[in-house]
Every structure is written in C-alpha cells, then in structure tokens.
Design a protein around this nucleic acid. Structure first.
Lengths: 121, 121
DNA sequence: TATATACTGAACCATATGGTTCAGTATCAG
DNA sequence: CTGATACTGAACCATATGGTTCAGTATATA
C-alpha cells in the first residue's frame, strides 16, 4: 500500500500547476542548466526564475548545486511516484464509478493481448 | 501524440494541490454528495466547501446539479488522462536521465512478459 | 586592480487562495 | 403563512504566488 503524505503531494501538485515550472522540468530532462540559462529560456528575470526553481526544489523535483558563481539545476532525486500513484488510483475509481471502462481497457489492452487467450480458452 | 493544454493542466494540478479537494474527489468516488454532506465531512462552512467544489468544477473534475434546494456533486465527465500522461512522460524522462530504469522497468514488466519474446528471438 | 558575470535578498505590487461571517434567497414541511 | 433547511454572494482577512526592480555579494577575467 502506498502511503500518501499530504504535504508532499500538496507541494508537488502545486509545483506542477505552473506551465513555466513544467517547462523547466522538461528542459532539465534534456540537460542540466544554470539559473541564467533557464531565465533566458523562459524570458524571465533571474530573480523570477530563482523563485520557480526554489518551488521545484522544495517539492523535491529539482536539486541544485552552486559551484563558483554558477548554480546548476538538475532533476531531483525523486520521481513522481506518489503523484502517479494518486492519479492512477483516482482514474480507477473514476472508471469504476462510471462503468465507462474505456480508459482502463485502453491501458490494459497490451496486457490483454498477451494474457487474454487464457481467459478466452 | 497527446496535446497538452497548459491552462487545463494548470487548473487540474492546482485543484489537486489541496488535500481537502483530493479528499472530496475520493469521497465522490464512493458516492455523490451535497455541499452540506461534504462540508460536514471535512468540517468546514458551506461557503468554504462551495469554493472548493467550484475549483474542482472549473478544472472539470467535478460536476454539480441543483435540484430543489440541494446541489448534488458528482465526479466530472473527464478523468485525469492528460495529467496522467504528463506525469508518465516526466517519469520516463527522469528514469532515462538517471539511468535508474527501475521505475519504467517495473511498469513495463507485464507488457514485456508478453511481448518480450519477439525481440529476444 | 577594474570590470563583467551570476546570483541573491529585500521590498514592492497585483492578484489568488483558503478560510471566515453575515445577510440574503429559494425551497420544503407543516 | 411559518419556520427550518440548503445554498449563495458579498465582504473581509491573512497569507501565498508570480512577477518585478534595485542594491548588494561573490567570482571570474583582463
């Protein structure tokens, strides 16, 4: 059983609720970047970008390290396991509640392709 | 390819960033409820709960209908497909970037069990 | 040493959020 | 008609958010 830590989920979902921050995550997925890099990339002041990075850092999604003048930003050590788990749980509830199993089915199709015959036979 | 609508993701993730609202979704997953029900359930004024419901409604996660005096709240017509897709995409990037493929592997295990032989052979 | 670069912190601003109270309006029960 | 119930809207409050500018500090470069 996954144990949900409310404050953690709060922080992560809040961090993800801003398109600039989602963009920063995508950007850092391609390569590490300095605050200056990110600020230029998203057309924002250094100070503004610093704040976004701080939000991502507090949510554990980004970590940073300052060497000399430059603070390098990288993807954080944790992924989005809890968040994914929460959402998946919701999606199952939702699908059950509506009896519209399309979504779940679509997801399971690949598995079914493989295992389906067992049941069919 | 999934097309991401920033404003929609903003609204949904923002809606999910509050534990009361996540609780409301879980609650509505079990059964429809009135504003009064929810307010009692989460120890809050009607007005306060109304606002939370409004946030969820705007994000498309809840829909409501007023009959007589009572506004009944139900799960919305859309699930969290986009949000799940965004998170899964991030998780893949994250896993690739770290070379720690455990997460992806764990997810793909079932599929691989099925399709693996094709590649192996 | 002088200058440019990279960040940082404080202060400010407008708006949003999460909650409240209070004063309604609308509906249902008798 | 009377009263209770269920919601609604306005107003208020404290705090957070997303951004800015401005004035630093620290580091690299010439």
């Amino acid at each position: 059983m996954v144990q949900y830590q409310p404050a953690r989920l709060d922080a992560a979902f809040a961090a993800l609720s801003d398109s600039t921050r989602r963009g920063v995550l995508a950007r850092l997925g391609r390569a590490d970047a300095s605050i200056t890099d990110l600020a230029q990339n998203f057309q924002m002041t250094l100070t503004g970008m610093k704040k976004h990075v701080a939000v991502l850092e507090q949510a554990g999604l980004v970590r940073t390290e300052k060497v000399g003048r430059v603070r390098t930003c990288r993807l954080g050590l944790r992924g989005l396991e809890e968040e994914a788990a929460w959402i998946e749980r919701y999606r199952k509830i939702w699908a059950e509640r509506f009896g519209e199993l399309d979504i779940v089915v679509e997801e399971l199709k690949q598995k079914e392709k493989a295992n389906g015959r067992k049941k069919r036979g």
